[in-house]
Amino acid sequence: MTNYTRRGLHGQTVREVARRILTGELPPGATIAVTELEAEMDVSRTAMREALKVLSAKGLVGARQKRGTFVRERSDWNLLDADIIRWQFADRSDEAFLDNLHELRGIVEPAGVRLAAERRTEADLRAIDAALAKMATAQAEGDTTLAVTADLEFHRALLTATHNELLERMEVLIETGLATRDRLVHGAHPHDDPVPSHRAVAEAVRRGFPAAAEQAMRELLDKAKNDQRRTTGGS
């Protein structure tokens, strides 16, 4: 039996059921024995019902008359949901997802920095510079947590500098996956200095050179992919 405290019980119940689904412990198509799950997790019917409502809204579970509550097919899951992305990485790293993330970033971020180079404001440049300064501090101090935070702030600032609301919303997906990727890479290669590659992007954006910004971002992403491969042993 899993022990839960009263504080955060709802969130813990949601996460635990989601974990079982995302890891395949409860595979797509499986009927969920709700009463048994309540007893195993030591939660009330109300708590379980509310948790399943959350997971239903995210496309993970469904309910039908006679069939009861069941795990939906992966094609129905809202894989862009920030919670689902976080839950997938709670206890493991998924190399396939990291590869998908890299492909997505290769589509979004080079085009994004072209716009950033054309549209950035002084406030945008200050945010980019602040993230770079934090990144340099993290590198000097060997602070992995700060390094992850600085990297996320840098890429968020670039998306903000596009002044395109839809591109800005991409930060939810990119940041959530990137945070996990950064923890893996920075933990394995703490002496690999990320500042020069990021500074090259920032400088091109600052000078208003869209093509140079795009090229610098592509080089940064290539480096990120190579770092991932060294960490995970992927091809």
Results as ranks from 00 to 15, higher is better:
Pro110Glu: 06
Ala82Arg: 15
Arg105Ala: 08
Leu79Gln: 08
Asp94Met: 02
Gly68Asn: 07
Ala33Thr: 00
Thr13Ile: 04
Val61Trp: 03
Arg72Pro: 03
Val54Met: 07
Asp99Phe: 02
Glu109Gln: 14
Ser93Ile: 13
Glu50Ile: 02
Thr121Met: 07
Arg7Lys: 15
Val43Trp: 12
Ala39Leu: 14
Ser93Gln: 11
Arg92Gln: 15
Met48Tyr: 10
Glu73Met: 09
Asn100Tyr: 07
His102Ile: 02
Leu37Val: 02
Val34Trp: 06
Leu9Lys: 09
Ala47Lys: 08
Lys53Trp: 03
Leu79Thr: 11
Ala111Leu: 15
Gly112Met: 04
Thr31Lys: 15
Asp83Tyr: 08
Ser56Trp: 04
Arg15Asn: 06
Ala82Asn: 09
Glu95Cys: 03
Ile107Gly: 00
Val61Asp: 00
Val61Leu: 01
Lys53Pro: 00
Ser75Gln: 10
Ala18Asn: 03
Ser56Leu: 01
Val14Glu: 12
Ser44Phe: 05
Arg6Lys: 11
Phe89Met: 07
Arg20Asp: 10
Arg114Lys: 14
Arg15Glu: 11
Arg114Ala: 13
Ala116Ser: 14
Val54Pro: 04
Leu55Glu: 06
Gly24Lys: 01
Leu115Lys: 14
Thr35Cys: 00
Arg20Met: 14
Met48Thr: 12
Pro110Gln: 05
Trp77Gly: 07
Asp42Glu: 08
Gln65Gly: 00
Val34Met: 12
Asp94Ile: 11
Glu118Trp: 02
Thr46Met: 13
Glu118Tyr: 02
Gly29His: 07
Gly112Lys: 07
Leu80Ser: 05
Trp77Ile: 08
Glu38Gly: 06
Arg120Thr: 10
Ile84Phe: 00
Gly68Gln: 08
Arg15Gln: 11
Arg92Trp: 04
Arg105Ile: 01
Arg6Glu: 13
Trp77Asn: 06
Ala90Ile: 04
Glu40Asn: 10
Asn100Thr: 11
His102Tyr: 07
Arg67Asn: 01
Arg67Lys: 13
His10Ala: 12
Phe70Leu: 02
Leu26Arg: 04
Gly24Cys: 01
Ala51Glu: 15
Asn78Lys: 14
Thr69Tyr: 12
Gln12Asp: 10
Asn78Tyr: 03
Thr46Val: 14
Pro110Ala: 07
Leu98Ser: 10
Val43Glu: 12
Lys58Arg: 14
